[in-house]
Design a protein around this nucleic acid. Structure first.
Lengths: 471, 471
DNA sequence: CAATTTGTATCTACACATTTT
DNA sequence: GAAAATGTGTAGATACAAATT
């Protein structure tokens, strides 16, 4: 019999004593999972300390440790020594960003579709590939990571983005997400801890959860992740890897300057972390000669660099290049075989053709032009926030807002007004509610007029609801 | 101080007492992993009982349990209550079967390339797809699991193979391996136990290892897995899922008859297992009207059915269909998004065209014809073993041999003679050395002459080395 | 800045089931 | 068919580290 009565005690999670049957840790974990998934325990809720639950249930408190451990591995909760244990954000919902169809009335400013219209140049490249009659040579099981000439084109493309490698250390994947999956599956194990920005790419958050990797958020400033914060987390957390988007981070649009990159690289090397560098935006700067050196170059092999082609060229052609350090070659090739057997030769060949005949650069330049135009449009509506910390030229913007309501409400409100945008909570690794943002995609509305109307609606909504921040 | 001296004791694994520093379980696990990976502990070796190691090191024996547990999750060892703990097969090597290039002199009878030459019909379909000018509609982010008309074609194709579903419960993947990855990643968690045949598809064994799933081998007879054995493993092992290739299993060529399928389905249902059914061969029987009902149909939704198109049509077009039960729809779609974002529309569209214009059936018929021809050739050389238990018409055969030498030696011997075949040890889930086999692929030699020469070399080698079994 | 709160890592204890002898 | 060998699953004990008061 426990000494105290907890009947009136305000335990946020109060498992029922009656229905409890051994194995205790398992039935408790199931109860906790059920309550979180059904939103009976909301995101951010502080759970009772392990010792209190144990007291209440008259169990050893490490048994509760075990309960929390199970749920932690499922990404449902997270704990900090000294602070307590909390329900993870998004644990009751799927934050994967996908292209759910919108009604025709609604303006897409949520997903980053990258001006996805099918270009004449791509159609032409497809024709050329077929005309060459060369495809039959590509249609076997050989060269699972890409044919030599395809890899050479990739190496050339990555070079202009500030990542230098060779064909032996390059592989082709079916898109950046696919490359991310193989990288994290091959280089890490379930339960491993990965450092990441406090706000990061939401599909990566979901992927980490799927692979049972534990994300450790690291604080940053307007120049990106703070090296001393990363070092701090390393000393207390036995971190194995780190995920970064150094150029125009998604969603914050922060580009890490050269000096900060070097400092971060030093910390990464010192702690033997494996960096996975995700690059979807450098190409937007490359045409103006503004590409910064990649972290991959700075790290000399202790990293994996992923360069997706879907945003710069065409989302339908699912191709991404990966450059990897010597030490990871075996693991990556093995992972590629296990996840894909091989990458589709057809898509790879079309992209190769586009790079070799120079049209890839033309398409990129065109998209860059549209992006600049749309950024100016954004600046007209939100002059206080454009180019505050982030990138001058970007597919999306990161707009601070003043609201404390649940994130779905705001998204839904705006959806009803006719625009789709995404709230910062989707991108939060852990509960972080000091400041809310909206990610505003500038590359997905069907045309400029629609985009302008969308921005107008957005501005009005924020003003009417007193949600605007002051610059 | 331990009481006994173990200096002369024959412990197969004897961690050094000196270098040992806490945390013990971790440094011990590292030592064990190192020795297994560097072949200092060979596959099949029986490790000392947990209690003995603990005695020797003067530690509590459950600490050793923990050591074994860590290595077990990595697939390095496996244990059976009462029997002991053993080093897994292939733990020191990668058994992933890939298309490593052979010298031109060597005849390929190892990999299953499926008569991979690029067919005119496929080239024509590609042209047609482009001519329709319809591609631009497919090149966005929408319909990540496949466009409705593509799914409809898949549903139609699976129907003739005995798997009935609809578009809402179908998804398109970049090949069967990709589909397997998503299925196991989405439906299971690291540490989960999956039942499988004692000999099964080696790339699946590797995938399971990558995903930290534990394979439980289940005994079978000439009609496939034994239902009572499956039931037995379920009662002692808390098994979560099961992987089966009911039609012409790879590598054993066993096709499970209808009655056995029903019995297995009953056991699967009773124990709430999730079945992942891999079908690469039914199409070879479908043309003759000999397709059996799929396990998917028998299980009414408690399963996932994967049908790869690479073997039947073209390996370069990386497409597989997956049909799934109602309960798994959410998890599978989520997994697809996380691993691939979406499947390449181009490949899917070409396959769709081939199914709709009927040429897929023509190609399949042609490959079936070649397969029958090559099986007869095999029967000429190995009459005692053809159609013993296995399938009459199959891309590969399963040839019993009489040797006790390490599997690499035999493969290398034959490679030196000019043929590549794979030894049964590659396909063994656990150490099982009662009877050895060779998997002889009949669909990968460049032409019939080469295949015949290969069979000739193989027969001679086996006879000269007295390795032939008697029928 | 010392005491307290709280989570984490590691090792120990024990009941139990299966296999072998 | 009982006893011994052996692995598995669950729960408890203890030392420790970070955050808070």
């Amino acid at each position: 019999m426990p000494v105290n009565s907890f009947d009136s005690y305000p335990l946020t999670w109060k498992p029922e004593k009656e229905g409890l049957k051994p194995p205790y840790y398992k039935s408790l974990a199931e109860d906790l999972e059920y309550k979180i998934r059904n939103n009976l325990l909301k995101a951010g809720t502080k759970l009772p300390p392990q010792r209190e639950i144990a007291d209440y249930l008259d169990l050893n408190y490490t048994t509760i440790t075990r309960v929390y451990e199970v749920c932690k591995k499922k990404g449902l909760i997270y704990g900090t020594t000294g602070k307590g244990t909390f329900v993870s954000p998004h644990s009751a919902e799927d934050i994967t960003i996908t292209a759910a169809r919108l009604s025709d009335m609604c303006i897409e400013m949520g997903a980053i579709n990258g001006f996805s219209e099918y270009s004449e140049l791509i159609e032409q490249a497809t024709q050329d590939v077929i005309k060459k009659g060369y495809l039959r040579n590509l249609y076997g099981y050989s060269h699972p990571a890409g044919h030599p000439h395809q890899l050479a084109a990739g190496v050339r493309w990555m070079e202009q983005l500030g990542a230098h490698t060779d064909c032996e250390h390059t592989a082709i994947f079916a898109g950046a997400q696919n490359a991310l999956t193989v990288a994290f599956l091959s280089l890490f194990s379930p339960g491993d801890k990965i450092a990441a920005d406090e706000y990061t790419y939401s599909n990566f958050i979901e992927l980490a959860r799927l692979l049972h990797l534990i994300l450790i958020p690291v604080k940053g400033d307007e120049k990106g992740m703070l090296p001393e914060e990363l070092q701090k987390q390393c000393t207390i957390n036995r971190i194995k890897g780190i995920y970064l988007i150094p150029t125009c981070a998604n969603p914050t649009t922060i580009t890490i300057p050269v000096k900060r990159r070097q400092e971060l690289a030093a910390v990464i090397q010192k702690n033997h972390l494996i960096l996975v560098e995700d690059d979807i935006s450098t190409w937007l700067l490359a045409a103006d000669g503004k590409a910064l050196p990649s972290m991959f170059d700075l790290l000399n092999g202790q990293s994996v660099y992923i360069c997706g082609m879907t945003k710069s060229l065409c989302p339908g052609l699912r191709i991404a290049y990966m450059a990897f350090g010597e030490d990871f070659e075996g693991a990556i090739r093995h992972g590629l075989l296990n996840v894909n057997i091989k990458t589709s030769s057809f898509d790879a060949e079309i992209i190769t053709e586009l790079i070799l005949n120079g049209n890839a650069y033309k398409i990129a330049a065109k998209k860059q032009h549209w992006t600049k135009r749309n950024c100016l449009l954004y600046a007209k509506y939100f002059p206080d926030f454009y180019n505050k910390n982030g990138n001058v030229i970007s597919y999306y913007q990161w707009l601070p807002i003043n609201v404390q309501r649940p994130f779905h409400e705001i998204e839904d409100d705006l959806l009803n007004q006719g625009v789709r945008v995404y709230h910062s909570d989707r991108f939060a690794v852990t509960g972080n509610t000091e400041q809310s943002f909206l990610r505003v995609s500038l590359c997905s509305a069907e045309n400029t007029k629609k985009l302008e109307r969308g921005l107008h609606i957005l501005k009005n909504y924020l003003e009417e609801n007193h949600c605007s921040c002051t610059g």
